[in-house]
Design a protein around this nucleic acid. Structure first.
Lengths: 304, 304
DNA sequence: CCGACCCGTTGCAAAAAATGCAACGCCACA
DNA sequence: TGTGGCGTTGCATTTTTTGCAACGGGTCGG
């Protein structure tokens, strides 16, 4: 949209922290950029940036305006989606932030299915931990978030919530692989590999361990669940993940067992959006679909 | 705001129903206007107008877009108000639609008072009957409405509600001027002048009369309460109005008496805004002030 | 049934706005 | 005290927008 170019430039300057760098990013000269900013500031009635030696930084007025811009952009996208609906076309864009567990199986499968039915709908999939995901929604950078155990629920509107019991992941040859269900104690006694602190799985583990006056003491700590799943095939360690991110391989090399509910309650996988926002049509429809799938595949909402 | 010029043009075309007329209104040539519209339509991805012989008309896509524009405008005004607050200045604009009864005393007094405290706040005051006032809010043409007995309460969010008993207005020499309170029967028996059907006062009168198997049969019917107040000084008729629009003149020529609550319940004077909208700072503050004044001057909210 | 009229649209030249280039003053840092 | 990055400004150039005139199509009244 051409009429929003000035806002795009403002955003670029805010991101770059300097007019000259932003000018380069946007493929115009610093002078042109500078004059657009100054021109807008004067018609807006207030400066948007603090001029510092070495660059610029958004001032509070600029923050407010940038927020307006993002809200405008999002509303315009919604309108375009509605118009596309009017003309009978199913097109649009869905932007989604999700936890790592959704990457290997769940999202690829269901986005692919959705796209066979609606080939003109495109997707962005970002990986964000539970804190970042909310930020993503708040800044309108993503329409939807599908996150395990989000932290702050302010401005986060729950669309669907499903329980996910943490599972221990291990090689088929691991001694504990014989049991159908594991006690937390057994897991902590065995050498283990654990996700780092920002993840919901780790948070649940730490919490449950403290309650039993134990602690999680991983041999390896990692930010990557994929790394964890692969590593336990090479050394006899226990890993931890939620079932939506797990699938038994055909060769039977990897197995996973739930941790007893007596030791650790199930966590919540939550599909949500920014509170009060009306989503673009494409995102809204996809959210409905996703909610239905989660509900039927992963059972009733534990909160009622 | 320069970057919204195209939207202003689209709105003008929608209002004028023809590009050439809109071009004249906006002081540009029809060709320039036409090319901007076509240009925008092509980047937007859809036509906004039906081209008819004899002019154009918004199509559904255009309606959606115009709605987006108005929402954007309103949000931008809110942001500008917040920024003005940041810089310590109290400026901004309050737009208000109101019933006639507020014109003679109430609004002039309180807007003037407000402006002595906040000289940089400007006002628009539009007179609208109770149906039009809601339309005014819905289209973002006004921020606030202060209306007696609004009709449809959809999308109308009540800020403050105060009771107003309908009063009979008459010359001091009128026989009924001796009594402190009038029965509806007495009023209908006497020759009277009444507001036309779209007004809340008339609506209450008609309703109460029907309940007593009577009917309002005015000698004169008028859209102007000012006319009514002045007319009863020249002929011995009863007029009707609510007390917020009445003030006893110094010379005692005009008197007004309440109609008994046994015959007719008090109506509601309601201050409201568009549901769910976050108002510009100036309007929000003025609304708070107005609500406080209404509450203290005209007693408790009858609905609780 | 046809001419007058109003409509949206388009070609082309003029006017206006945005841009690039070069230079200036400023401040931090070495 | 120089050096390099920063925001900003004057000026020539390029790009965009506008106004003018004309075209084709439709309605309406004589």
């Amino acid at each position: 949209m051409k009429h929003l170019q000035t806002f795009r430039l403002i955003e670029a300057v805010a991101r770059a922290g300097s007019m000259r760098r932003a000018a380069e990013d946007m493929n115009i000269t610093a002078s042109a950029l500078n004059r657009r900013i100054r021109g807008f500031e004067s018609e807006f009635g207030s400066e948007l940036f603090e001029r510092l030696p070495g660059g610029v930084r958004l001032n509070p007025a600029g923050e407010l305006l940038l927020h307006h811009y993002r809200a405008t952009l999002s509303d315009l996208a919604r309108v375009q989606g509605q118009v596309a609906d009017l003309t009978g076309e199913r097109r649009g864009h869905v932007s989604l932030a999700c936890s790592q567990a959704l990457l290997p199986y769940f999202l690829p499968e269901h986005i692919a299915t959705y796209r066979t039915e609606h080939p003109r709908v495109t997707f962005s999939v970002k990986v964000r931990d539970r804190a970042e995901a909310e930020q993503e929604l708040a800044s309108y950078a993503s329409d939807l978030a599908l996150v395990f155990e989000p932290i702050y629920l302010v401005d986060f509107e729950v669309i669907q919530i499903v329980p996910q019991t943490v599972h221990a992941v291990m090689a088929a040859s691991h001694p504990l692989a014989q049991k159908a269900e594991l006690r937390l104690r057994e897991c902590l006694d065995a050498p283990h590999i654990a996700p780092s602190a920002q993840y919901g799985v780790r948070h649940l583990l730490d919490f449950a361990a403290r309650k039993g006056s134990r602690q999680v003491s991983p041999v390896i700590e990692t930010e990557s669940f994929e790394y964890m799943r692969n590593y336990v095939l090479h050394e006899q360690l226990l890993g931890f993940q939620i079932p939506i991110g797990l699938q038994a391989p055909a060769d039977g090399s990897l197995v996973f067992r739930p941790i007893s509910a007596r030791d650790m309650p199930a966590g919540s996988l939550i599909l949500g959006q920014r509170r009060g926002r009306s989503l673009p049509v494409a995102s809204a429809r996809f959210a409905l679909r996703l909610a239905a799938i989660l509900k039927t595949q992963y059972g009733a909402d534990p909160t009622g």
